[in-house]
Amino acid sequence: MDLKQSFVELLRRAATDLSPDVENALKQAHDREEDGSPAKAVFRTILENVRLAREQSTPMCQDTGSLIFYIDLPVGEKEEYYINIIKEAAEEATKKQYLRPNAVNPITGKNSGNNVGINAPYFHFHQWDKGEVRVRLMLKGGGSENVGTQYKLPYGPVHAGRDLAGVRKVIIDAVYKAQGLGCAPGTLGIGIGGDRVTSYALSKEQFFRKLGDRNPDKEIAEFELSLKDDLNKLNIGPMGFGGKTTVLDVFVGYQHRHPATFYVAISYMCWAFRRKTMTIKNGEVYYD
């Protein structure tokens, strides 16, 4: 096994091959729209683009995003080893045009040209008890990242208090404000509670769930479904042209908060919902 090439392949798959759960949700959204509507035309274009990207092995979207890695390591494995190989793989994947160079030095304005830089790619490491390595990769575009937001409850403008009803109000507010900016229909990752940092982290981790997956907590599962219904009533539609599907799904997670704080982080994933998992087990590599 050539580990570097395996990571190049992971990056290629993430950028060019939309996962079946997302593609199916987009097909269903297409079928729900009226014939001859701009919304239907958008979904038709999206689905055709997804098919072409897979066939030609070219990025479905030119913004191949920030590279965000979540890696679970067995006890005794070194983080540094994976960081170095993945940086080499990112450089090669950029050369092969699977990725656009997306790492810019904020002080000099210079693009590194290879997706490698300070904290780029971005890594989250966790140790686990299993004997295998799990690498979960998310490519997150800049347009969708820009509409992500964090509310501090209570939030006056929409009369949102410190409870689930208040959480619902700020999420509706955020999706209303995101129209036209994040490439709808989007999928929402919501993190309730925690501090400033962990609330965003929790919201983003939700994106590794499959569409249709529900929170094991029954109250939250129902909250996710009713939010999805409400948000689709906004009729913002694909690309903000109006239409029946504004969000593909809503994933909510929560964690304990400090008595004085109540954060709600909302991460927005565009329709080009790109994430893939790679498992390394007994010297073999598996992709999902």
Binding site: V42, T45, I46, E48, N49, L52, A53, Q56, T58, P59, M60, C61, Q62, D63, G141, G143, C183, M239, C270, W271, A272
Partner: peptide, 9 residues
């Protein structure tokens, strides 16, 4: 159409 990178290319 946002995201339709391959098709437009």
């Amino acid at each position: 159409v946002g995201g339709a990178g391959t098709l437009i290319a």
